[in-house]
């Protein structure tokens, strides 16, 4: 086989791979590109949210504070990001930290907020639940338009200062420390706060102990959607996806989209066109 044909074949394979990768939907948890049950695509669509995919710090530096930033902290924050978050909230921004077993406590610790996610145990409710105790139903919600919120593998919030409790689990709930789905002697019993709001500087921080309430499979259950709308406080919503670890597929997708946007710039695209014209007309050029 001639070298030119091999090159052509390889180019075709690479192009086909790129198209497949770009077209196939993501399956990553909490990804806004994920249309399956565990993605955030529906939440993004309903809230009309802007999404931060790369640098939270850069975004916060130039944004107005009249927004609600929703973050799912499943990777650690850098010092710069934490400082940017602090400035954002202090100046009037609204921060919603939705965390169960991630790095939400790193944010709270840095901000000096006297509240923590109990991420060493899972909230279980053998009485008020959907199908099993790991999917508790919260009915004690302080929003008039929300009567129940369905959680999914949630944690709780440990409060050490006065805060507005938005939602409490039932008195029958307990913290399943050994994750065996059965209440054992010594395991704490409820009610536990699962959503709270704290004032911070000129802004506010909302803590929700379960980011799964917003996934596609859960957002339609109970009044989860109304609850999410309520905690955003009617502001423009921005979702921070930069702290959700993506799969290799997601990273490749992002790279493909980045490359595509770079190539489609007005200073690059003409060169590509000229290059293609040159290749096509090379024979004529050479005489």
């Amino acid at each position: 086989m001639k070298a030119s044909r091999i090159l052509l074949l390889m180019a075709a394979i690479v192009l086909a791979s790129i198209i497949i990768v770009a077209a196939y939907p993501s399956t990553t948890d909490f990804s806004i590109y994920n249309p399956w049950w565990n993605g955030y695509s529906e939440m993004r669509r309903v809230l009309g949210a802007h999404v931060i995919e790369f640098s939270l710090e850069d975004f916060l530096r130039t944004t107005s504070t009249n927004i609600t930033l929703i973050t799912v902290p499943y990777t650690r924050f850098s010092a710069g990001e934490l400082e940017a978050l602090k400035t954002f909230v202090s100046k009037g921004g609204r921060l919603v930290v939705m965390d169960d077993f991630g790095y939400g406590n790193q944010v709270l610790e840095y901000l000096g907020v006297q509240a923590r996610f109990t991420n060493d145990s899972m909230l279980a409710d053998p009485v008020f639940n959907y199908r099993n105790c790991r999917l508790p139903i919260v009915r004690n919600v302080d929003y008039p338009n929300v009567s129940e919120v369905v959680l999914n593998h949630a944690s709780t919030i440990l409060l050490m200062e006065v805060a507005r409790i938005i939602a409490n689990s039932s008195s029958y709930s307990y913290l399943d420390a050994n994750f065996n789905g059965v209440w054992d002697e010594g395991e704490s019993v409820g009610p536990f706060p699962v959503a709270v709001e704290l004032d911070y500087g000129n802004g506010s921080i909302v803590l929700v102990s379960d980011p799964s309430i917003g996934i596609n499979g859960m957002i339609g259950m109970g009044d989860n959607l109304e609850f999410i709308k309520s905690i955003t406080g009617g502001r423009r919503v921005v979702i921070d996806e930069s702290h959700v670890p993506g799969s290799m597929h997601d990273e490749v997708k992002k790279t493909v989209f980045t490359v595509r946007s770079m190539l489609s710039r007005e200073y690059v695209f003409p060169f590509i066109v000229v290059g293609l014209i040159y290749v096509s007309l090379r024979k004529l050029w050479k005489g």
Partner: peptide, 24 residues
């Protein structure tokens, strides 16, 4: 995702098994 305690962040509610804590 690298979860603390290796706890999955959620399960598919449509496929969640119905279970009861009889002791409770």
């Amino acid at each position: 995702l690298a979860f603390l305690n290796n706890v999955p962040p959620h399960e598919d509610p449509e496929r969640a098994e119905r279970a009861v804590d009889a002791l409770y």
